[in-house]
Nucleic acid binder design. Structure first.
Length: 929
DNA sequence: AGCGCACCTGTTTTT
DNA sequence: CAGGTGCGCT
């Protein structure tokens, strides 16, 4: 059953000593190979705790862990604890265990505490930052000129975070370990680019002027300070820009700007620590400082083996952490530069493309004043995985063209790095690449989709294509949402996946209305939504609000809401009233509960939070449950996935490639350092364009390489069929440059409707697995109970509430049960029961249980309500809100599975399984080992 | 062929 | 607000 490693996969598994950079292209079995290499190390007597395996997402880490557990027959509890995680997760743990004093490494007085949380919500941090920025402006009036430049203060926050991941940190005085050198930029790099772009281009009739001079058109539309422009009256030097002017521009004095950013950065760190939070960038920063400064700690932590997956998504500080965390120099970096698409999120492709240079540079930085890494890196060994187990050779060949396609007409693409061509492991007959354009693209794509599924033109190994075999990608979310909406209207089986603006949805709007009404009895904005929803017409709504003569049932409901003990409960009550129950409501409840996690509920701040989410267009992930439908998603969210049929839609002008212009007034990049785009003139009070910044930033043109990689990622998701689509007459550069010879498609709505109605399908398939997306198997999949009888008719929401209540008590929080509260009886029972237990209480314990079924190994996931650990015995307790014991036999299977998972952890103790019926106040023993 | 100008249009998201 | 594109002038 389990596949055997082949070729270079084998080589990678067996090469464990030294530094390895592995080029693992799309679909080459990376997870598989890395997990086998891990297993190999275990066989060589290495303990899991001596191997650090870092991945990009939590999900990837869990998949890797599962893969390893599946394959290895070794101590499960050790593997569960093993450091297989994201860099962030690792740093968080490190800081919590040993890092309270880390900020002292920067000379900060504030410390990290046990209460320091990680802020993950952008809206939340922006709000904190805005609050901080107000007081900063008061305390530092001397930076007035910069406050006038900045129009969006969250840009400053982004800037600070991007400096942090590059290893540029402020100290109480000055900058940490010479980080400020980077702030002045890299003159060599600048000069190199300048010379290339400033040389006159030879044309047919002599020398044309330089590209730089061309790029400077538009200069006359800007307003430069007259003094400034006078000093550089003539920037021309024949057919090029005067190199002296360009040099002077680079060397512009920016000491005040740097001082401003220093103080802002430093004070923000103090603020965040004082308010007990860190963001993801600061987490990495403090972990790094800690490891740099505390030699004994570093030595005690360093690993025998460090393996980093998805290396193309790492940033500078993560590269340095990898070196710093190794005790031996046995380091593995696996990735594919062609799939690096998160640059805007601080990932740095150069970590791979300039691996050797960076290794050398970073190694010397780390060991500058004393030896911190007890090894010298030897030669870098390179291994390439080129066998692709996903796509047809046709698609693989075609997708390579994506890497060389021009982003604009004049661009010259130079691929100055090696592309490891992929070879299809299996030849496929059912494969094709085609393109089409249509006047209304949404309809065009849908009609093409319907034809592919309902028609007979394409097959997969002789089987018809199903909706779920197909994915539709777009560069931006808005097209994907639009398509999803249209598909719903026409009844085409399509489901959107990815981020959505949940607070703009119907449930979100109603929720906000009720919260407003709770906050202020006569909130106009609140009532108008509620009354409108209740069916009153505009005139009626107006008079009700004017007279404050609100319908009694709504007032009663409002009072009920006020009694709920936290925001989650309020939200649930509202959604139940309206019968809302979908992916949006789930997401809203989750977000609110995570954000307002205390039982103390401040309505005003919840309202503000939601308003801010709406204003900023913040999105949250929703998963659609429609397993049989075609997925619509952005290319970014499709990374790592694969589908037999892929539509790459919306390849239109201004969209794909998208023009990447960050209009930030103060920005940083590697070659220019820190610069301000505008300058404020004290003499006349005007804001001018900054000439120096304008000139220098013209040197590097727009870079389309990440857009090309995005195109490459999209194409390499396809196994058999690839369709490319654009709006007729609006075809974008990529679509044009690919030379596709598109078919002109004239969609008709009637055709879509009739085709999808024509043939009710029966799914019958042979020899082909279904969705390949990673699916966790829940313990609940072994029991077969619907929610109606699950909680004895009291509903899913009731069960969740009681479980949340139990978790609070078990984790030692103060709780009170009021007289008229819902579920009072159950709660009192639970409270008394839990308080009667002596010993250690571990609520909500995650378990992983490997299990053989039909000779295949599965890993089940589950969450144990309560683990009661005493010296000789461990009780696995599951709370049930059922009013009778009819489901008990089903529950027994569930609990025995839990107990199996637990027994691996506590091999020397007796394990017993129990059900506690909260209504019946009865503890039933179901299991004994 | 080479250059300049007016017009058009608008992004991705994990920890 | 900045960049690409296409058109029109020289």
């Amino acid at each position: 059953m389990s596949p055997k490693p082949k070729g270079n996969q084998k080589k990678l598994i067996n090469s464990t000593e030294g530094i390895y950079l592995v080029d693992a292209g799309a679909g080459t079995g990376k997870t598989f190979t890395v997990s086998r290499r891990y297993a190999k190390l275990l066989k060589k007597e290495t303990e899991p705790e001596d191997i650090l395996l870092a991945t990009f997402t939590e999900n990837a880490a869990e998949n890797m862990r599962e893969e390893i557990i599946n394959y290895c027959n070794c101590d499960l509890s050790k593997l569960r604890e093993a450091p297989i995680s994201t860099f962030h997760g690792f740093c968080q743990q490190l800081l919590m265990k040993k890092g309270f004093k880390a900020p002292a490494g920067l000379g900060l007085e504030e410390a990290i505490t046990a209460n320091t949380r990680t802020i993950s919500n952008r809206v939340q941090e922006n709000r904190e930052f805005a609050n901080f920025y107000d007081s900063f402006q008061e305390n530092y009036p001397e930076y007035g000129q910069f406050y006038r430049i900045v129009y969006e203060n969250t840009n400053l926050l982004q800037l600070i975070k991007s400096l942090a991941v590059k290893g540029i940190f402020p100290k109480q005085s000055g900058w940490y370990r010479g980080g400020d050198k980077l702030l002045s930029g890299n003159y060599h790099e600048y000069l190199e680019k300048l010379e290339r772009v400033n040389a006159p281009v030879p044309g047919k009739r002599g020398k044309k002027q330089s590209k730089l001079l061309n790029r400077l058109t538009g200069m006359k539309n800007r307003t430069f300070d007259s003094e400034e422009i006078k000093r550089r009256q003539d920037i021309r030097d024949g057919k090029q820009v005067d190199p002296g002017v360009m040099k002077e521009a680079f060397n512009q004095d920016r000491s005040e700007l740097i001082a401003f950013i220093h103080d802002l950065y430093l004070e923000y760190l103090n603020y965040a620590l004082g308010r007990n939070y860190l963001n993801f960038s600061f987490q990495l920063m403090f972990a790094y400082v800690l490891l740099m400064e505390d030699d004994r700690l570093r030595e005690s932590i360093q690993f025998d083996y460090v393996m980093v997956d998805e290396f193309q998504d790492t940033n500078e500080i993560q590269f340095k952490l990898s070196l710093l965390l190794s005790s031996t120099g046995n380091i593995l970096a696996v990735g594919d530069w062609k799939q690096s698409i998160f640059g805007f999120q601080y990932a740095s492709v150069e970590n791979i493309t300039e691996f050797e240079d960076r290794l050398d540079e970073f190694y010397h930085q780390l060991n500058k004043d004393r030896q911190r890494t007890p090894y010298t890196p030897g030669e870098v060994n390179r291994i390439s995985l080129r066998r692709n187990y996903r796509s047809s050779q046709e698609i693989l060949n075609f997708s390579e063209r994506a890497l060389e396609v021009r982003g604009k007409k004049e661009e010259e693409v130079s691929l100055n790095r090696e592309v490891v061509s992929l070879e299809a492991a299996k030849s496929k007959v059912d494969t094709d690449i085609s393109a089409f354009v249509s006047e209304s693209e949404v309809e065009g794509v849908l009609s093409r989709l319907v034809r592919v599924v309902e028609g007979d033109e394409a097959k997969l190994n002789g089987n018809p294509i199903e909706y779920k075999d197909v994915a539709i990608f777009s560069r931006n979310r808005s097209f994907a949402r639009e398509l999803d909406k249209k598909a719903r209207e026409l009844g085409v089986s399509v489901a959107y996946e990815g981020g959505a603006e949940i607070f703009k949805s119907d449930p979100g709007v109603i929720l906000l209305a009720w919260l407003r009404v709770m906050e202020r009895r006569n909130s106009k904005r609140g009532w108008s939504v509620i009354l409108d929803e209740a069916g009153y017409n505009i005139a009626e709504v107006k008079s009700i609000i004017d007279e404050e003569d609100f319908p009694p049932d709504t007032l009663r409901f409002r009072d009920q809401l006020k009694e709920a003990y936290d925001i989650g409960a309020v939200t649930r009550k509202i959604f139940i009233r309206y019968g809302f129950d979908n992916t949006f409501t789930d997401a809203i409840i989750e977000v609110l509960q995570n954000t307002f996690d205390s039982s103390y509920m401040n309505l005003a701040s919840v309202v503000q939070f939601i308003e801010e989410n709406i204003r900023q267009g913040e999105t949250y992930d929703i998963d659609s449950q429609k397993e049989e439908a075609t997925t619509v998603q952005t290319i970014h969210s499709a990374k790592g996935l694969e589908y037999p049929v892929v539509f790459l839609a919306n390849m239109n002008q201004h969209t794909f490639p998208s023009t990447n212009s960050d209009g930030k007034r103060i920005f940083y990049n590697d070659s220019l350092g820190l610069r301000a785009r505008k300058s404020y003139s004290d003499s006349d009070g005007f804001l001018y364009d900054d000439l120096e910044t304008y000139l220098t930033s013209r040197v590097s043109g727009v870079d389309y390489s990440e857009e090309r990689r995005l195109l490459y990622v999209a194409m390499t998701r396809a196994e058999n069929y690839l369709f490319l689509s654009a709006e007729k007459g609006k075809e974008g550069r990529f679509f044009k440059e690919l030379d596709l010879d598109p078919v002109d498609l004239e969609p008709s709505i009637d055709e879509i409707k009739s085709r999808r109605a024509a043939r009710p399908r029966k799914t019958l398939r042979v020899g082909r697995p279904g969705s390949k997306r990673p699916k966790k198997k829940s313990v609940h999949s072994v029991i077969d109970i619907t929610f109606e009888n699950h909680s004895g008719g009291r509903g899913k929401e009731f069960g969740t509430m009681i479980h949340a209540f139990a978790e609070k008590i078990a984790s030692g929080k103060e709780v009170t049960v009021s007289q008229e509260e819902r579920g009072k009886e159950d709660k009192v029972n639970v409270k008394n029961f839990i308080q009667s237990l002596s010993g250690k209480l571990l609520p909500e314990q995650e378990v992983l249980i490997p299990k053989y079924e039909n000779e295949t190994k599965h890993v089940y996931h589950g969450s144990i309500d309560l683990l009661h650990v005493s010296d000789d015995r461990v009780r696995v307790i599951d709370f049930k809100t059922d009013e009778d014991r009819t489901n008990e036999s089903q529950y027994k299977r569930q609990i025995s599975l839990y107990a199996e998972g637990v027994s691996a952890e506590y091999p020397d103790r007796e394990i017993t399984g129990h059900i506690y019926y909260t209504k019946l106040n009865k503890l039933v023993t179901t299991f004994k080992i």
